[in-house]
Design a protein around this nucleic acid. Structure first.
Lengths: 155, 155
DNA sequence: CAAAAGACCAACTAAAATACTAGGAATTAA
DNA sequence: TTAATTCCTAGTATTTTAGTTGGTCTTTTG
């Protein structure tokens, strides 16, 4: 029941882009260095984010990544699902909303537990916007001097 | 971000015990057969439940397992944590409440995300009691004839 | 226009976690 | 005393995770 590095690294990468792409697109290598993540692994994560329409890329020299929308319009849920797949605790079609493939669906009681967990997780991340993390991050930097490495976002 | 078979099978096992231990203790082999779980794998799961004080065992012939308390006094959260370990999405000491071992704790912003997810999961499972699953299961069987295999609880 | 900076892509690999299996020792009711 | 049962430890196969490798295509800039 743990988030993988995909979700952890990937969210940090998005936040890094949000914080540093105001002037120009951020290069993969810059994010990788700033966040201490392997560049080629991060590449795969950003590919997922791009496919999900969360970031936009420009190729070639001076290229890099920017957000596709304003941080107020991107939820943490959208980001995490792009990286991790759905956040449901079990892969039960009925919980997700599909048809019952499960033989025992009529006598299955535990699925109410999974649904409850699922709903609470999704609600928690869907009501939290990227902008809130950006604000929190800026607040932390208030009073601190700018470093040449710009803003970091560990964890 | 998925629950393992430990949590899924284990919860089914506890529910099976809750539903079938009124007259006498339920043998491991009976649960295993009724739930279609490998007996020796289930054994390890029940060991965790016993260690956590959720079930009580009696050894020897006619032995088996019963609940340590009434189903109203056992939360699903307690059961799942016994089986899966803590349900936090990341292992960050500050989230769990311990001291900061994380170097970046002062600039870490994503931890608010993990805390939010963590709180919502734990709240969801801690406010759900085993008794509610027992009632739901009984309701499903209302009107159905008793089978010699007794009550099952798939999923 | 060449070269450097960068995104994009597919396939491979090492390590860790999961999901079991095997084999037996200890305990108790009949 | 024997059958039914829990208890315990150690193994193993499979799957998933977390990367690495080696390249191709695109764009800016000297």
């Amino acid at each position: 029941m743990k988030l993988s590095t995909k979700g952890r690294y990937g969210l940090r990468a998005v936040l890094d882009i949000a914080l540093n792409s105001e002037e120009e697109a951020v290069a993969l290598s810059t994010i990788a260095e700033r966040q201490s993540i392997s560049i080629s692994y991060l590449e795969q994560l950003i590919a997922k984010l791009k496919k999900a329409g969360i970031v936009i890329s420009t190729r070639g020299a001076k290229g890099g990544y920017v957000l596709s929308r304003k941080p107020e319009e991107i939820s943490v849920g959208e980001i995490l699902r792009a990286l991790e797949g759905n956040l449901d605790p079990v892969d039960c079609a009925e919980i997700i909303g599909g048809e019952s493939t499960c033989m025992a669906s009529d006598i299955c009681v535990t699925k109410y537990v999974w649904k409850r967990i699922s709903d609470s997780i999704n609600n928690a991340v869907d009501t939290l916007m990227l902008s809130e993390l950006v604000e929190e991050s800026n607040a932390r930097y208030k009073g601190q001097q700018e470093t040449k490495n710009k803003k970091e976002t560990m964890c």
